[in-house]
Design a protein around this nucleic acid. Structure first.
Lengths: 203, 203
DNA sequence: AACTTTTCTTATCTTAAGTTAACGTTTTGA
DNA sequence: TCAAAACGTTAACTTAAGATAAGAAAAGTT
């Protein structure tokens, strides 16, 4: 847990801008509620069975969300720079998480604890903007999930992969293929076949 | 579009209680921004290609969310009494919806238009509580989606069905099976087979 | 009550995904 | 730098889901 540089603070402020804009006085109070954490590769940000009592903003690096089922892990999601990260359900409900979140590389995350988040929501100086921030952030993820859910309902794995080719550059460039496969709801072997099928068809 | 009875207003107030509690003065202003709509069976609440500029609270009846793909419709979700309904992504972004929402029976829905919602968010008397309501409601659906997404990533269709048997009583009791099948991400024929498999195994 | 439509099951056939294992390649880290 | 681990592809086999069609049962309509 280290002090934040002004560049790091600026990155966070910019990352929050679509959701909320603080004035100077508010910002000074706000940044007293945050801290910087450095995660080594494979270090856990959240752990199944434990309450995830914090959420974060990824400054640098990336994280992987995964479940463990029958001894093997299954990747469900990723977060990259300038994205938020948490085991949201656990953070919001206070119940133990059912998934793990790990750093995939050395990763810097600005962390807000549940306790500090609640303190800000209860602080008249910040309450309104924090409610708004929370609303817009939750809505942002709601939209992501709605899109992802409907792709599972209406599309085949192959169609989902083709869509990812168009819109998911970051994931495809930076993630090992077997993680991407899980993310698409299939096995690594199956994704390998789909890729081959596409190669042959489009040549 | 009709006037609301006091019983209907009470139902809404109770339905919002987990998220926000209004005092009398606030409530009087709030209810000036809502209206009651009666939907006949099969009448549309939202339509693909059109912006869904309203959201609602189901007083009575039920609705079905569906996509049309290659000429056939695929059911993605349902809302019942005391639940909220909207093509959220469209409502929140202002872009055309990609899905339809229809009443499955004569259905009463209390409707808030985007315009009125924005007016309340801009009204100092209601702004804070509406932001909070919006946050908690979005978080509620975020949690639902997270749960549903992880079931698609980590479970087989059969496992999803078994889970629905435990927790989805309303859906199973009130929805035709071929809608439930889509909801689980499979075809009606496939669900029929899964049901048979389970029957044989557990006897 | 008679008729139509919807719903569910069943069967057949086709297609694709899961499983396991082997192999070569790349990456990692001690 | 060298051995171990991780990764991606391929193959063979198994299992389950998609597509289509037919028929029975249930629900809805006139």
């Amino acid at each position: 847990m280290d002090a934040l540089t002004s560049a790091q603070l600026a990155a966070l402020r910019k990352g929050m801008e679509p959701y909320v804009v603080f004035n100077e006085a508010e910002w000074i109070v706000f940044i007293q509620h945050i801290s910087l954490h450095n995660f080594k590769k494979k270090q856990l940000f959240a752990e199944a069975g434990k309450v995830c009592s914090h959420f974060g903003f990824v400054l640098k690096g990336s994280v992987r969300y995964y479940h463990i089922k029958d001894g093997t892990d299954i990747t469900g999601y990723f977060s990259f720079e300038n994205e938020y990260v948490s085991s949201y359900t656990s953070f919001l409900t206070g119940e133990p998480a059912i998934n793990y979140i790990e750093a995939l590389e050395p990763t810097q995350i600005i962390v807000i604890s549940k306790k500090n988040m609640d303190a800000m929501l209860a602080n008249p100086m910040l309450a309104y903007k924090m409610e708004r921030f929370g609303r817009l952030l939750a809505e942002h993820y709601l939209i992501c999930y709605e899109d992802r859910m409907s792709s599972f309902i209406t599309q085949t794995p192959e169609e989902r992969y083709l869509k990812l080719l168009q819109t998911g550059r970051d994931i495809l460039r930076r993630m090992p293929q077997h993680y991407v496969a899980n993310f698409l709801g299939i096995t690594p072997v199956s994704l390998s076949r789909i890729r081959k099928r596409i190669l042959v068809e489009h040549k």
